Computed example of a mutant assay.
Amino acid sequence: MKKLLLILTILCTSLGFAQNKALFEEANALYNDAKYYEALDTYKSILDSGEHSAALYFNMGNAHYKLNNIAPSIYYYEKALLLKPNDTEIKNNLAFAKNMTLDAIDTVPEVGFSGLFNRWASYFHYEVWAKISLGLAVLFVILFLVYYFSSATLKKRLAFITSVSCLLLVFVSLALAFHGERLVESNQPAIVFAKESQIKSEPNLRSTEAFKLHEGTKVQVLDTVNNWKKIKIADGKTGWVMSDDIKLVKTL
């Protein structure tokens, strides 16, 4: 019975992949024929089936861009970039879409050791850093064994120095892996979908207005209180926005 269920599951999954592939090609054909609304409907049907991919989000971003839908185009490009963070084409199209936004916000660069460590941790995904630390640990064990069993003085010295260096790098890469994981977990990007959104100093309508944001602007969500989100923008300013005015990038 279990084998039968497994076979049925595999068959259903295969049929689902085949159907989604056919729908994806159909949507691409509609896009190429400049039928962007129809293409989006077809892409959305793939999303509704539970499939999520960088290519799907990228193409949805392209269709919205063609329709001059600022916020949705940036939103889907950002979702694609989460899945393929080093993709040049996604980055380029995202840059074009951001040119349509009204808010010109200067990015405050991270300085000092903290900023440098963040850049190192973000250079690879934290799982890659973990694999690097594991590889270095294996290399340390091999070199230490060479040092322990070798009789030649020069060979022992070289093996010892290299093994100690590998051990130090193990700790560094592990630190980068843990820090990278924290950065990923704390990264909660969102896109403003309201045409114009009043950012308040406190999470209530009676509080004073801190500043305004317009559709397509990317923010970082720091906290949630009822139907309000505390956000931070690229220049470091913070405030509270109504939850309905923004859309979290990491949501499926």
Rank of each mutant, 00 (worst) to 15 (best):
L154N: 13
T238N: 03
D223A: 12
F144W: 05
F58L: 04
V241S: 05
E127V: 05
Y37E: 15
N93W: 06
P72D: 11
L83D: 07
A152F: 00
K84A: 14
H214R: 15
L139A: 15
F96T: 08
V184Y: 13
L167Y: 12
K98C: 02
S53V: 07
D244C: 00
S243Y: 04
V241A: 10
L4V: 14
L23V: 01
Y57V: 02
V219M: 06
S150K: 01
A210S: 15
V146Q: 09
V108H: 05
A55G: 11
A121W: 07
A194E: 05
I231P: 01
A194L: 06
L67N: 06
H214T: 07
E25L: 13
F58G: 00
M1D: 01
K247F: 04
A27P: 14
A177F: 13
E196K: 15
H179D: 00
A18K: 02
L143G: 02
A97F: 02
C166D: 10
S151Q: 15
V219I: 15
L167M: 13
H64F: 15
G236F: 09
Y76V: 01
L4D: 05
K2L: 09
S173I: 00
P85Q: 04
L222I: 08
I233N: 02
H52M: 06
Y36G: 08
K35I: 03
D48N: 10
F113R: 04
T42V: 08
H179P: 07
L15V: 05
L4P: 02
V249K: 07
I199P: 04
W228S: 08
L213Q: 13
N68K: 14
F193P: 01
I233C: 05
Q220I: 07
W120P: 11
N227G: 00
K155V: 14
Q188F: 06
A175D: 11
K229P: 00
T9A: 10
V111H: 14
K131D: 10
L252H: 11
Y36R: 12
V138H: 03
L139V: 06
A34R: 11
N32V: 04
A63D: 04
L174F: 15
S165N: 06
A137S: 14
L183N: 13
A39H: 02
S201E: 13
L116R: 15
S243P: 07
D33N: 15
A39T: 03
L15I: 11
Y126S: 06
A29Q: 14
S73C: 08
T217M: 03
L183A: 03
G236S: 09
L67A: 10
Q188P: 00
D41R: 14
K229R: 09
T42N: 10
E127W: 03
N118M: 00
D244T: 01
H52D: 02
L102Y: 12
Y123L: 10
N92Q: 12
E196G: 13
R206N: 11
S207R: 03
W120N: 14
S49V: 02
I191L: 03
N187Q: 10
Y126G: 04
I142Y: 05
I105P: 10
P72R: 14
N62G: 06
L15D: 02
M1C: 07
T217A: 14
Y126L: 06
I90A: 09
E110T: 13
A22N: 12
S201V: 10
I142N: 02
L136H: 01
K91N: 08
L5M: 09
L11E: 01
Y75P: 02
I74A: 05
V138I: 15
E89C: 00
T251Y: 11
